[in-house]
Simulated assay, not measured.
Amino acid sequence: MTTYVALLRGINVGGHKKVPMAALRELLTDQGYGEVRTLLQSGNAVFTASEKAPAALSREIQQAIEESFGFEVRCVVLSAAELRGVVERNPFPRSSFEPSKLVVIFLSGPVDPERLSGIDPQGYLPDEFRLGEREIFLHCPNGLGRSKLADVLGAADLGVTATARNWNTVTKLVLMTES
């Protein structure tokens, strides 16, 4: 069995697309996944399954949610090893950021760097971003709520599903995959 993380996009925000975590755990268990656990109310689930491509798991979960709750929810699935790889690829030195001010935007696939070429990094300092393999690292020293760069990245047409988590959540999910 392989451990995976599912990151649901845009649920339980402002009273829209409500997916209670107990219901999500039950849904994933009913789909045949094992050891299902959730973190926070923002749609973070850790589970085990037979080894399968994350994109296939994502499609299965999205379909099950739509059938069960009646609305579409996009999600990004990563194996535990892929999530650890994201942590290892963090381009910002650990001593240079507060965990609540570093965000990882998880992507369903690689992004063509050309899609980000219209963003002038100098125009958004001190905020910075770095493109990873299937993620974008976004550092907002003054906080995410004040970041114009976060708004621009959120509105960018990346051509893939994207969902963001702060560094605290990312590291908690890694710990969950190890226990």
Rank of each mutant, 00 (worst) to 15 (best):
P113W: 06
L40C: 07
F92H: 13
T163K: 01
A162K: 04
K52I: 10
S95Y: 08
F71Q: 00
R9Q: 07
H139G: 09
I119F: 07
P110Q: 14
S95A: 14
V86S: 03
L158V: 09
L125Y: 11
T161W: 10
L102R: 03
R94K: 15
G159Q: 07
G132Q: 05
A45S: 03
K18Q: 10
S96N: 12
V152H: 05
F92I: 15
T3D: 05
R130L: 09
F69A: 02
T169G: 04
L8H: 00
I61F: 06
E82V: 09
S95D: 14
C140I: 08
L175E: 13
Y33F: 15
T161N: 10
G85Y: 13
E135I: 11
V86N: 03
A164H: 05
S58T: 06
D157G: 10
D112I: 09
W167V: 04
Q122W: 09
G159A: 09
L7G: 02
A53W: 10
A23S: 14
T48Y: 06
T48C: 10
A6W: 01
D151W: 11
V103L: 14
N90E: 05
A81R: 14
E60A: 06
H139P: 07
V152S: 06
Q122M: 13
K18V: 12
V46F: 03
R74P: 06
G109K: 10
A150D: 03
S100F: 14
V77A: 00
G123H: 13
S100W: 12
I136Q: 03
N166H: 08
G123S: 15
L175R: 12
L27N: 01
L107Q: 02
T3R: 14
S96A: 15
N168T: 15
A162F: 07
L102N: 06
E35A: 15
N142G: 11
R9S: 05
P99F: 09
G34T: 08
Q31Y: 11
N12P: 06
I105D: 03
Y33M: 12
C75N: 05
L102C: 08
E178I: 08
N12Y: 05
T3Q: 11
G132T: 05
A49Y: 02
L107V: 05
L28N: 01
S100P: 06
K148W: 12
N166K: 08
K101Q: 13
S179Q: 13
I119V: 13
L57T: 03
P126N: 07
T2N: 13
T177Y: 04
K52W: 06
G14R: 12
I65W: 01
A23P: 00
G145Q: 05
E178G: 07
L78G: 03
A164T: 07
L116D: 04
L39V: 10
P54L: 04
A156Q: 11
